[in-house]
Computed example of a mutant assay.
Amino acid sequence: MTQMTDSLIVVPMLRDRFPDLLDNYGYLFRAGDRVMCIDAARAAPLHAAAQARGWMITDILLTHHHPDHVDGVADLVALTGAKVWGHSADAHRLPYLDHGISAGQTIDIGGATARVWDVSGHTIGHIAYIFDGIAFTGDSLMAAGCGRLFEGTAEQMHESLSQFADLPDDTLIASGHEYTQTNLAFALSLEPDHPALISRKTEVDALRSEGQPSVPSTLGTERRTNPFLRVHDSALKDATGTTGQSDALTFAAVRRAKDAF
């Protein structure tokens, strides 16, 4: 478990019966007298991390309905009485939903405001929570990658990720999985001589060798090294055989290549 700031904690998800880690992360984010948990694959690690700091989880913010993001919700609600937030359009797939919210809405929790973005692609109804300086992106924009397209299309995901263009470089991208090494390996298969990719791989390998998470990353880092944010780049278009084609078509080509990697 790694403390990133006084208010943001990254919590690895332990398996119930095995000593190894899932590749999921949950986050604890404190604002005023409220403690938010973003996604909940397991209740126990999140509850323990909060208790260790004298915190009580008051709110659970769900990005999407997949079991590895919601399986711990029932137990966490039972332990804490926390209220559950999520996309109202996905209410039939989100457990214990108290606050149904919509894309375009702004929410206030403990004095911290977040814009709610629809980032469909990985699933339909996937949302991201955009606080000042921190974006909780679930399985949409990820460290050096993006989520696999289970329900949406490449065009939808490209449109979803295009929303991040207006955020500053120092925005933390708090995504939901430890996929960074695999994502960088894929990116390097397209551009093996890219200096920023080589440098980031070295940094991430060092973190992981010490058991440290590679997330959150920064949006500036993603802009330099995430192929799904670089589909406008001529080198990446050349690497995917989409020179002269639209960025959306390049995005689709990168996603197909990643799926086959």
Results as ranks from 00 to 15, higher is better:
residue 258 K to T: 04
residue 161 L to K: 04
residue 260 A to Y: 03
residue 252 A to M: 10
residue 199 S to Y: 11
residue 66 H to G: 05
residue 173 I to P: 00
residue 66 H to L: 12
residue 80 T to A: 05
residue 235 A to P: 01
residue 100 G to T: 06
residue 184 L to C: 09
residue 118 D to A: 10
residue 187 A to P: 01
residue 5 T to A: 08
residue 144 A to Q: 05
residue 12 P to E: 13
residue 46 L to D: 05
residue 43 A to Y: 03
residue 83 K to I: 00
residue 120 S to M: 08
residue 242 T to G: 02
residue 52 A to D: 13
residue 254 V to P: 04
residue 227 P to W: 02
residue 183 N to M: 04
residue 203 E to V: 06
residue 59 D to W: 03
residue 234 S to M: 11
residue 70 V to I: 15
residue 180 T to P: 01
residue 54 G to T: 10
residue 23 D to M: 13
residue 74 A to V: 13
residue 207 L to R: 15
residue 217 S to W: 09
residue 249 L to W: 08
residue 246 S to D: 13
residue 201 K to N: 11
residue 101 I to S: 03
residue 6 D to W: 00
residue 144 A to N: 14
residue 86 G to K: 08
residue 3 Q to E: 15
residue 82 A to R: 01
residue 253 A to K: 06
residue 255 R to Q: 14
residue 34 R to M: 03
residue 228 F to A: 01
residue 239 A to S: 08
residue 145 G to H: 11
residue 173 I to V: 15
residue 148 R to I: 14
residue 42 R to W: 07
residue 48 A to Q: 14
residue 3 Q to W: 11
residue 36 M to S: 11
residue 228 F to K: 01
residue 139 D to L: 02
residue 105 Q to R: 10
residue 169 D to A: 15
residue 125 G to I: 09
residue 89 A to W: 06
residue 96 Y to Q: 13
residue 36 M to D: 01
residue 190 L to E: 02
residue 33 D to V: 04
residue 172 L to C: 10
residue 120 S to L: 01
residue 246 S to F: 06
residue 219 L to D: 09
residue 186 F to K: 02
residue 259 D to C: 00
residue 10 V to L: 12
residue 67 P to D: 12
residue 17 R to S: 14
residue 158 H to M: 07
residue 119 V to G: 00
residue 189 S to I: 04
residue 138 G to H: 07
residue 33 D to M: 06
residue 242 T to S: 08
residue 90 D to M: 12
residue 221 T to A: 08
residue 202 T to N: 03
residue 137 T to C: 06
residue 57 I to S: 03
residue 207 L to F: 12
residue 221 T to E: 15
residue 47 H to K: 08
residue 88 S to Y: 01
residue 152 G to C: 08
residue 84 V to R: 00
residue 251 F to Y: 15
residue 13 M to A: 15
residue 7 S to C: 07
residue 222 E to G: 02
residue 207 L to S: 11
residue 121 G to R: 07
residue 229 L to Y: 09
residue 150 F to E: 11
residue 28 L to N: 04
residue 156 Q to G: 05
residue 258 K to C: 01
residue 54 G to F: 12
residue 190 L to N: 06
residue 221 T to D: 12
residue 16 D to Y: 14
residue 77 V to T: 06
residue 157 M to T: 09
residue 206 A to K: 15
residue 219 L to K: 10
residue 26 G to S: 15
residue 2 T to V: 08
residue 230 R to T: 09
residue 82 A to V: 06
residue 76 L to M: 02
residue 80 T to V: 10
residue 236 L to Y: 09
residue 39 D to V: 00
residue 132 D to V: 00
residue 185 A to K: 14
residue 254 V to N: 03
residue 28 L to S: 02
residue 63 T to I: 13
residue 206 A to P: 08
residue 251 F to I: 06
residue 120 S to W: 04
residue 84 V to S: 05
residue 172 L to D: 02
residue 80 T to F: 04
residue 88 S to N: 00
residue 105 Q to A: 13
residue 1 M to W: 11
residue 28 L to I: 10
residue 168 P to G: 09
residue 256 R to K: 12
residue 194 H to C: 08
residue 160 S to T: 04
residue 40 A to R: 07
residue 256 R to N: 12
residue 18 F to E: 15
residue 144 A to C: 14
residue 1 M to Q: 11
